[in-house]
Computed example of a mutant assay.
Amino acid sequence: MKYIAPKTVLCIHDLSGAGRCSMAAAAPVLAAMGHQPILLPTALFSTHTGGLGQPAAQMCGGYGPAALQHYRELGLQIDCIYSGYLAGTGDQELVRRAFEFWPEALKIVDPVLGDGGRFYTGMEDKLPGVRELCRGADMILPNLTEACLLLGLPQPQQELDQAGAGALAEELAGLCGQTVVTGLPQGRHLACAGGGKERFVVQRLRIDRSYPGTGDLFASVLVGALLRGNAVSAAADAAAGFVAEAIENTDPAANPALGVWFEPLLGRLAGRGV
């Protein structure tokens, strides 16, 4: 059997001990897909902040820059830099420094700012810095709310058709050359749309259940598929399909704040061609 070296992914995210989101989703997904995640937490939380009470929190402060310097001194090859929730301007600078240390890496930014038409608490003043990170990235993965915030547009008052979804993704391409916008409502479906080098819209039947962390799950599968050499549209299709499977696999009676039961499905990612 021919040996294929895993791609190394520097994951700059927060880590929640309970609740399937951020780094707790990225690490197992990327590992199952044959890659090596290098975990660089920006903050530690006992739980995520979506419905599990007030979490215990610890900002990682000077750990991140010291860790980056150590990895650089080791001469580690970083194939991809994948960032998510950044709690402060120091975390944004951490991502910028990683971009400078490994300029040849694929740079993917999930610009975590808000959802449901509004900012997450405390993220309003982070918008300019996140926008600048997006300009330095190769690809960004905003949801619909974040796409409008990045562009300075009002939140849409009606559902987007395929043309509208494509136009929004294409407008974002002026900020970053390749974009994938998620969470686009289209009647009985949810869609993601790509703009820039590859234009597409991927639809999935809407499941009438909502869970935190599904955006992180989508982004992580998409990153893993891209690093396997898939086109952006194929990677987005695989990611949307896996999220839908994970929702279907989750007991409707379970506490939704704990996220979707994706762990039993990880073997499917390992065995897929995406």
Rank of each mutant, 00 (worst) to 15 (best):
178 Q>W: 00
259 G>Y: 02
211 Y>I: 06
100 E>T: 11
236 A>P: 08
185 P>Q: 09
233 S>P: 12
192 C>D: 11
266 L>G: 07
60 C>E: 08
51 G>T: 06
114 G>C: 03
171 E>S: 15
169 A>Y: 11
271 G>K: 10
27 A>D: 06
210 S>V: 14
83 S>F: 06
21 C>Y: 02
35 H>V: 04
251 D>V: 04
160 L>C: 03
109 V>S: 06
3 Y>G: 10
248 E>L: 13
196 G>M: 08
173 A>V: 10
71 Y>G: 01
24 A>D: 10
185 P>Y: 06
249 N>D: 10
76 L>K: 04
177 G>K: 13
258 L>K: 13
95 V>M: 04
63 Y>G: 04
215 G>A: 06
65 P>R: 01
191 A>M: 02
75 G>S: 08
208 D>S: 11
38 I>Y: 06
114 G>Q: 06
174 G>P: 06
175 L>V: 09
212 P>A: 07
134 C>H: 08
124 E>F: 00
170 E>K: 12
163 A>K: 13
173 A>G: 13
101 F>L: 15
222 L>P: 07
244 A>D: 10
194 G>C: 07
259 G>V: 07
191 A>L: 02
133 L>N: 10
210 S>Q: 15
105 A>R: 05
34 G>H: 03
135 R>I: 01
146 E>R: 05
125 D>Q: 09
250 T>Q: 09
169 A>D: 11
84 G>R: 02
138 D>V: 01
182 T>R: 08
267 G>M: 07
11 C>W: 02
44 L>F: 13
80 C>D: 10
96 R>K: 12
81 I>W: 03
70 H>G: 11
124 E>N: 00
271 G>T: 13
209 R>M: 05
75 G>D: 11
201 V>I: 14
159 E>Y: 01
168 L>G: 12
187 G>Q: 11
52 L>H: 05
199 R>Q: 12
48 H>Y: 01
264 P>R: 09
206 R>A: 12
196 G>Q: 10
142 P>T: 09
222 L>H: 09
247 I>A: 02
159 E>A: 12
129 G>V: 02
56 A>M: 14
267 G>W: 11
112 V>H: 05
151 L>N: 07
191 A>N: 07
36 Q>I: 03
204 R>L: 03
66 A>I: 01
58 Q>P: 00
134 C>Y: 05
44 L>S: 01
